[in-house]
Design a binder for these strands. Structure first.
Length: 449
RNA sequence: GGCCCCUUCGUCUAGCGGUCUAGGACGCUGCCCUCUCACGGCAGAAACACGGGUUCGAGUCCCGUAGGGGUCACCA
């Protein structure tokens, strides 16, 4: 059967190294990446650094490192436009020779004369994969400048030349580029290159509907990393901004995204970035992490005081702590926030409290004293270090018999001195036998004084 | 302001003319679980911007209005 040969898809991701990569850039890379992988095409990375004033190599380095950590790979590059001035000059000379461009006034830097393209005017129409047909009258742009001088090309020109030279087939970028598309098409027509397919992605905006920026909160990968957001979670969430799967599915690994992504299903209205939703997605990814990986990553966010407390505990007790954390956080930085809020104070001291706080609802002082004494007695059966299940096993039957609240509330309160904390079994396990007993004795002394 | 794009719950979205008394998720509220908190389970409140068409029938198509956004560099 004469099957039509499928065009090899080539996309590109062209950041300008003038600042750190932000969410919008990463989302654009992601969609290019997913589209390429999904269609067995390739993705090219190139740095658009023709603006010597603003470009800085350090930003390119950061971008490369970020992409690597995010697991976003590319098939070719990185290329740097600053290394291709000869080729651009060649195109400019050719354009001038053919009368399609011309040298005009002296440039601002007084290093030569600017080159303008001859703009025939009229409508340029292109069919955007996401937006549909877009028609723009290019007369409004006049004979726009395509180079500061023959050796100093500008963005619109270099984009078109590079896309052609590298065989790019699809341009997927933010919709803030829609109005520059006709100018690029004009240049493409002048140098007689094939027409590309365009897909303009809806923008990611802040809660106020304006372009996402610093004042909206974290916007760079670095900042999300500091919050303890997993790369795969960030990517997962970003994919959901403007795109959705058929079956209401929202949790995706990168490879799942690749197989389920569909550029045609990208919608066309701007999406507001919602940190809460990101955190919720991140929590799901946290839950999928292996125990070892979770612990390893969590370590980075552990406050020193907590770290040294844990280092004095047996491994299995440390694991009790980690398991507890996995249940309570949605991003790693939550642990430092919890620490600052004093939620771990119980690990270091029992805290001050009124004796009345020790008594559960309708229980009374007498019963509470009795339960605490019994608890102390039962604790004797425990080894010095134990896991939550071991304490639960010895305390539970007694608690059931005398009222779980009546027994357990005072124990937990004596242990923590806090109205809110993990359950008493976990707390006792974390503290160990000796410390637990001391705190209960202290509570008894308070009640009996 | 010119040009361009956009408009379903607070937010991200499903919906591609009848199956929509509009579905899911985050958040929110309530209940359950439970010794507290968190987790988890269940339930609930919550949206088709407005006005005209087209059609037997419109969230879904067309046109206007309003609102929002983008872009108008010798930046990318």
């Amino acid at each position: 059967m004469a099957e039509e040969k499928k065009e090899k898809i080539v996309v590109r991701y062209p950041p300008s190294p003038t600042g750190p990569l932000h969410i919008g850039n990463i989302r654009t890379f992601l969609f290019n990446f997913l589209f390429a992988k999904k269609n067995e095409g390739k993705i090219i990375l190139r740095f658009e650094d023709t603006d010597k004033e603003r470009s800085d190599e350090k930003f390119a380095k950061i971008a490369l490192a970020d992409l690597k950590e995010l697991g976003l790979t590319y098939d070719e590059g990185p290329f740097y436009q600053s290394g291709r001035t000869d080729r651009y000059r060649e195109v400019i000379e050719e354009l001038i020779k053919e009368g399609k461009a011309y040298e005009a006034e002296e440039n601002a830097a007084k290093t030569g004369r600017v080159v303008r393209i001859k703009n025939p005017g009229g409508d340029i129409v292109f069919n955007d994969i996401i937006k549909g047909e877009i028609k723009i009258d290019v007369s409004q742009y006049g004979d726009f400048v395509i180079a500061r001088s023959k050796d100093d090309p500008l963005y619109h020109l270099t984009v078109v030349v590079d896309d052609f030279d590298f065989g790019v087939t699809h341009v997927i970028r933010g919709e803030d580029h829609i109005t520059s598309t006709p100018r690029q098409i004009l240049i493409a027509q002048a140098i007689e290159t094939p027409t590309l397919k365009y897909a303009h992605l809806p923008l990611i905006v802040g809660q106020d509907g304006k372009k996402l920026s610093k004042r909206h909160g974290a916007v760079t990968y670095e900042e999300f990393k500091k919050q303890g957001i997993l790369p795969e979670a960030l990517l997962n969430y970003l994919a959901l901004l403007g795109w959705s799967a058929k079956n209401d599915k929202e949790f995706f690994t990168l490879s799942e995204l690749i197989s389920e992504f569909d550029l045609e299903k990208v919608n066309n209205s701007p999406a507001k970035f919602d940190y809460e939703k990101l955190y919720a997605i991140n929590r799901q990814h946290l839950l999928k992490l292996s125990e070892d990986k979770f612990i390893l990553l969590l370590q980075e966010f552990l406050p020193e005081k907590l770290k040294s407390f844990l280092s004095l505990r047996p491994d299995f007790v440390q694991n009790v702590f980690y398991a507890e954390m996995r249940e309570r956080i949605s991003k790693f930085s939550d642990i430092s926030a919890m620490f600052e809020r004093g939620e771990f104070n119980f690990l270091f001291e029992a805290g001050e409290y009124e004796e009345g706080s020790l008594i559960w609802k309708k229980s009374d002082k007498e019963k509470t004293v009795e339960h605490l004494k019994k608890t102390l007695e039962l604790f004797e059966k425990l080894p010095d270090e134990f896991n939550p299940k071991e304490v639960k096993d010895i305390l539970w039957p007694y608690a059931q018999e005398h009222g779980a609240g009546d027994v357990l509330w005072p124990v937990r309160y004596a242990l923590t001195g806090a109205k809110r904390s993990p359950d008493p079994f976990t707390v006792a396990s974390l503290l160990g036998k000796k410390e637990s007993k001391e705190r209960i004795k202290k509570a008894l002394a308070k009640l009996e004084s």
